[in-house]
Amino acid sequence: MDPHLLRTFLAVAETGSFSAAAEQLRYTQSAVSQQIAALEADLRTPLLTRRPVALTPAGERLRGHASILLVRLAAARADVTRAVAPPGRLIVALTPLAWHPALADALALLRTESARLTARLRLAERDQVVAAVATGEADLGLVDGFTAPSDPLRLPDTGGARAIGVAESPAVVAVAASHPLARRRRVDLSDLADAYWIDAPAVAAHTRLPVDGLRPGLRYDGQDVTVLAGLAAAGHGLAVLPEPLVTTHPSLTGVPISAPRLVHRVELVRIPAHLTGGEPAARLAALIEHR
């Protein structure tokens, strides 16, 4: 099966529309239709109904395989590229709130060990970080999120990447120091359903919290943690943030959360099979895990 045809098929399956898939892929709608027809001819079975657009039973089965096949193809290409990469190359993808002192300390130690180290840090959203590690675009990843104590984060299945927890810290509701909530000793998130929240999907999405009904008062589409903290400090809305971050901001107060029980968790994402003892990524992973 041609991977280009599989990508087109997934785009149609995910958008539910030939025209939307064409726009996403920057193809013409007729080109998308021709590619789907070619894939169906190759497999000798219909994969999609046309009016309305929906997956057939065969299409449902193919959808389960297609994303994994494309990830593995990208991983194979990246693995070959990695074999001829310059010595000392290290690419770490991370979510904005996943930056951790252990990473800074480990990078500093690596620099003292190798003058050839060329490190690059890349900010991305959580699913993008996992995908970058799975496909080899990044050597390691650090992701974060809010979860129950000791519970792992819910990450997308990529077929190869594995995650291990490296840090947990208390989660608090960040409010302006002048906000009435700042005087509360503890707060139940379900009691704040009528409050205004800052929706910051790339940093700390309120929609990922295990509480229904929290409504956004402002949406921030950037990845700068300082901007998010500044918006909360200026009274534009509430945000759940790691306690260590809030305590460093002079105009923010962190209110402990009584329910649900939440911690801010940071996990290291890697592909064990790709980490040999001599690679910078393997050394960095070991330093972070055994900090």
Rank of each mutant, 00 (worst) to 15 (best):
P3I: 14
P244M: 13
A38L: 11
E113K: 05
P3R: 10
P170V: 07
G141T: 05
T56R: 01
A66Q: 11
V130N: 01
R219E: 05
G16R: 08
G277A: 15
G165V: 14
L48K: 06
Y196S: 15
T112Q: 09
L5M: 06
A13W: 04
T95K: 04
A182N: 03
I288T: 09
A74P: 06
P152G: 03
D2F: 04
I164D: 08
V203C: 09
P149V: 12
E60K: 07
A119Y: 00
G64Q: 04
A20V: 09
H236I: 10
L231T: 01
T158I: 04
A176S: 14
V130E: 13
R26N: 10
G145F: 02
V175T: 04
V263E: 01
P216L: 07
I271R: 14
V12E: 00
A22M: 10
D191T: 12
R63C: 03
D194V: 13
V211Y: 11
A259K: 13
T226N: 08
T49G: 03
S33H: 12
R111W: 02
A259V: 11
D191W: 07
V269T: 02
D224I: 03
V32F: 03
S19W: 10
R270D: 04
T45Q: 14
H179G: 01
R51I: 12
L73E: 12
V133R: 11
P170F: 00
D151P: 02
D42A: 15
V266A: 00
T253C: 01
A134K: 13
E243P: 01
L228A: 04
A163D: 00
V173K: 14
A66D: 09
L5F: 14
Y196N: 13
A93S: 13
A273H: 13
G145P: 06
L5E: 14
A66G: 10
D191N: 13
H65G: 05
R63N: 01
L181K: 12
H274M: 07
R291I: 05
A74E: 15
G141H: 04
L209G: 08
G145Q: 04
G160H: 05
R185I: 06
V263G: 08
A76P: 02
H236E: 09
V166E: 03
G278E: 12
W197M: 08
S17N: 07
I271E: 11
I198K: 01
L231D: 01
H206A: 10
Y196M: 15
P101E: 06
L107M: 13
P57A: 01
G159A: 13
L121S: 10
V227G: 02
L70G: 02
L47Q: 08
I91G: 02
P280Q: 15
S33P: 00
P52D: 02
Y27W: 12
T81P: 00
A239R: 06
L275P: 06
T56V: 03
E243I: 04
P280Y: 14
A234P: 00
